[in-house]
Simulated assay, not measured.
Amino acid sequence: MEYYHLRTFVAVAEEEHLTRAAERLNASLPAVSAHVRGLEEELGVPLFTRTPKGMRLTGEGQALLTEAKQALAGLDAVRARAGSLRRDVTGVVRIGLNNEAGRMRVPEMLAVLSRRHPGVEVHLTDSSSANILDNVRQGKLDLGFIYDNIIEQGRDVVTVPLENVDMAVVGPTSWADRVCLADWETLAGLPWVWFSQRCPFQYLLEACFSCRDLPLNKVMVGDSDATLRTMVAAGIGLTLLRRDDALEAEAAGEVCLWQREGLTLGLSLIYRREKAEDRVVAAVVAAVSEVWGLPGHRR
């Protein structure tokens, strides 16, 4: 059922005539007739009785008219709300990025935001998922992109899921025979270049190994993807990287990839629940939703 179906139904009911309704709607007579016929077929009830003088509501049509008007009013309210968001939204918004801006589709988001709300000034901060989560909760950031497996239970943060990011276990190229087709037990026994506290990569792997009751052999800790990649290339141990980074490192002859199972992390946009009605935050969420092609938004 589309908006135009309800609009046509109400117009015909009020005008009691197809031609007058078509003139009111600035539509062709065949189109108005088709809208009425399509709505009747979808609802499975007759809405009008055709008479020589025009169109008369049936009992079913009379019963549905009030609901149709209320539905139209609701849709008009949504449109009006959207219009208010498009107009005069100004202010500064602070957004945390847990990876490169291009991977977060930030340039596309900024283009949409600039076109709709030129009065919004965007400040971007590069940080880790854990720090971004803390800073959003503390009000130091308005929104942030994070890997969402670090979010503890609670209702203080709104999470907008964007995509599942493919991950890959990688090892030194000279370890390919031991790593590529290894089982979980073999992986656990090899040296690992580990991650800083509250790192989403750490949480993901710890969940994988702990559920199999396998202890890990951690030989060092790094706090950036670049450091992890460099240490693996140097032959120090295994680590976890985004799959796109891992494939790039593999193509450069720096690492080999474990091939037994796929791992993923959820990437989400977050903001404080109390900021849900903030017009600047809502504008950013709408722009992000559009460029990521989320349900209800055109891409």
Rank of each mutant, 00 (worst) to 15 (best):
I146M: 04
N149A: 05
I150S: 02
I151A: 09
I151Y: 12
Q153L: 12
D156W: 10
D156C: 05
V158E: 10
V158R: 15
V160E: 00
V160Y: 14
P161T: 02
P161S: 01
E163Y: 08
N164F: 10
V165S: 08
D166S: 13
D166W: 06
V169Y: 00
W175Y: 04
D177I: 06
R178V: 03
R178S: 14
L181T: 11
A182I: 00
D183F: 09
E185Y: 07
E185R: 15
L187P: 02
L187C: 10
G189K: 05
L190E: 05
L190K: 04
L190F: 01
W192E: 00
W192A: 03
W192G: 07
V193L: 04
V193I: 13
W194A: 11
W194C: 02
F195H: 15
F195A: 13
F195Y: 15
Q197M: 11
Q197G: 13
R198S: 13
C199N: 15
P200L: 11
F201G: 01
Q202V: 07
Y203A: 12
Y203L: 15
L204Q: 04
E206Q: 12
A207G: 06
A207P: 03
F209N: 09
F209L: 11
C211G: 02
C211R: 15
R212F: 12
D213L: 06
D213C: 12
L216T: 09
N217A: 04
N217I: 00
G222K: 02
S224F: 09
S224W: 13
D225M: 09
T227K: 11
T227N: 12
L228Y: 07
R229G: 12
T230P: 00
V232P: 03
V232W: 00
A233W: 03
G235A: 11
I236Q: 13
I236K: 06
I236H: 14
L238A: 05
L241C: 12
L241R: 03
R242P: 08
R243L: 04
L247Y: 02
E248S: 10
E250M: 06
